[in-house]
Amino acid sequence: MKPFLRTMGAIVWKDLAAEWRSREMISGMLVFALLVVFIFNFALELSPATRSSVTAGVLWVTFAFAGTLGLNRSMAAEKDRGCLDGLLLAPVDRTALYFGKMLSNLVFMLAVAVIVMPVYSVLYTVNLMQPGLWAVVALGSLGYVSVGTLLASMAVQARTRDILLPILLFPVLIPLLVAAVKASSGFLQAIPMEEIWPWLNLMIVYDVVFISTAFMVFEAVVEE
């Protein structure tokens, strides 16, 4: 167990340190996310009346799009700089690689959410700073990166990698996104908790199922 955690920690540390120096991924995702929010403003005419019902949808579509950008970047960097090959030569547990990459992708997703949500609150004077909503963001991001990391590590090894990731990812992501949108708008519209629970449960099941699936199959994705 010890070497497993150490490998995982090393990968997370490496990603965070590299990102801290260049800041290219977070800044890219962030600018993109804010642009998407602005485009939605004009595309949907977010007047105060419609705002309350579409906020959750706008947020999750933004996160989903910004997320593919980050995932592609994070895995392509491994592939192009030859990091992946180097890591594979090392006698480490392959699934530790998966959990390391997944954790650093999760950090990036949450970092984007932490900035986008307050900005959105200010722009549209809705209060997004609710603990329930943050729980949904956490569960949703976890599910997103658990599938996303697995599929992105396949997509970057294919010829058509830039268009492949969203095509592979979105059909599988639909239950998670439906649940996340419904749960978020449930908290925003303050509907009773027992109507939100089915969605939270679905997200928890999704997270558990896909983390364990990825855990079992990841070795097949990186093996040379």
Binding site: L151, Q157, P171, T213
Partner: peptide, 14 residues
Amino acid sequence: ARFGAVYAIVAFIS
């Protein structure tokens, strides 16, 4: 073949 197998599993589970 490996990637196809992985994606067939992931797609069906969802």
